[in-house]
Amino acid sequence: MSLPHQILEYPRVINIGSIDNEGKGMLKRADDKIYLESHAHRKRINTIFGGGAIVIGVWLGASAELSSQYIVPAIFTLGGVFWVIYGLFANKKYKIFELNRLEGTVAYPDHYFNPPLKGKFKDLKAVISVSGNIDGYADSEYLKFVNTFKPRKLDLLYTFYGSDPKKDWSFYVWYMDKNRPLPPGTAFDPYRQQDFERRKAERFPKPLYPSNIPTPEATPEQQKERERFWKEW
């Protein structure tokens, strides 16, 4: 079942120390317009994985005595070569996760060498996938995006390896509700006033998505001003 476009619980908090514009950190931008992550680190993982597969393939091939035994080594080697090529040459600019708060759009990585998938956030389908351990009990939960922007007969869901899928999804929904204040976290503090002034100029329109928790303004004064607008409706 798809997750509702709803703030389910108190969201993941984005602090200013999480933003890394120049280094190897994932989060590149977080303000009142754009939230941007780079997922290019997965390319490095593919390169390492491919290199390991090549080593295994060569080792198995060297150990094989019959021609029929070369099938498995060949699969490992050729698969490893593909993953190394992909890891080295796939465009890292394609491996992004971007939320555009004002335009209401989302972009996230497509498979292999394809450019990012992009569409309206309100149309995005997300699910929580639960993996099991060796005893058959539920183990880890992952947030996954179902491809709704470029439908294909056979497709894989894009997985987000976060610590808490519901908190992550609640953050995405809150951030993408441009009629609400910015989510909690010091990363957004420099932009709260201008975001407030934008919504005030628009006469504080009603939220786009429901919420299970309060989402007040940053200050009591701002909260009173917003409530006064709503009472005048």
Rank of each mutant, 00 (worst) to 15 (best):
R29F: 14
I85V: 13
K93H: 06
S38T: 15
I34T: 08
L99Y: 02
F82Q: 02
R42Q: 06
E37H: 01
G80Q: 09
H41T: 13
E103N: 03
I85H: 11
A40S: 06
V84E: 05
E98R: 12
K166R: 14
A64R: 04
P115D: 07
Y142V: 01
G57W: 08
V127T: 08
G162K: 00
D110P: 05
E37R: 00
P151Y: 02
A62W: 04
I96C: 02
Y108G: 01
V81W: 08
F145G: 03
R152V: 12
V130K: 12
E65D: 01
V58M: 10
G132T: 09
K43F: 10
F121G: 15
N100V: 14
D32F: 13
I54Q: 14
K144R: 11
L99W: 00
N147S: 03
N91V: 09
L78W: 14
E141I: 00
K28V: 03
V130T: 11
L99I: 01
T159A: 09
G162W: 02
V81S: 01
K43S: 08
V58K: 08
L117H: 00
K28A: 02
Y35N: 00
F149K: 02
K93F: 05
Y86C: 11
I56H: 13
A138Q: 06
Y142M: 02
Y112A: 07
L143W: 04
P165C: 00
R101T: 06
F76Q: 04
K125G: 10
N114T: 09
G57C: 05
P165Q: 00
P151C: 03
I48V: 12
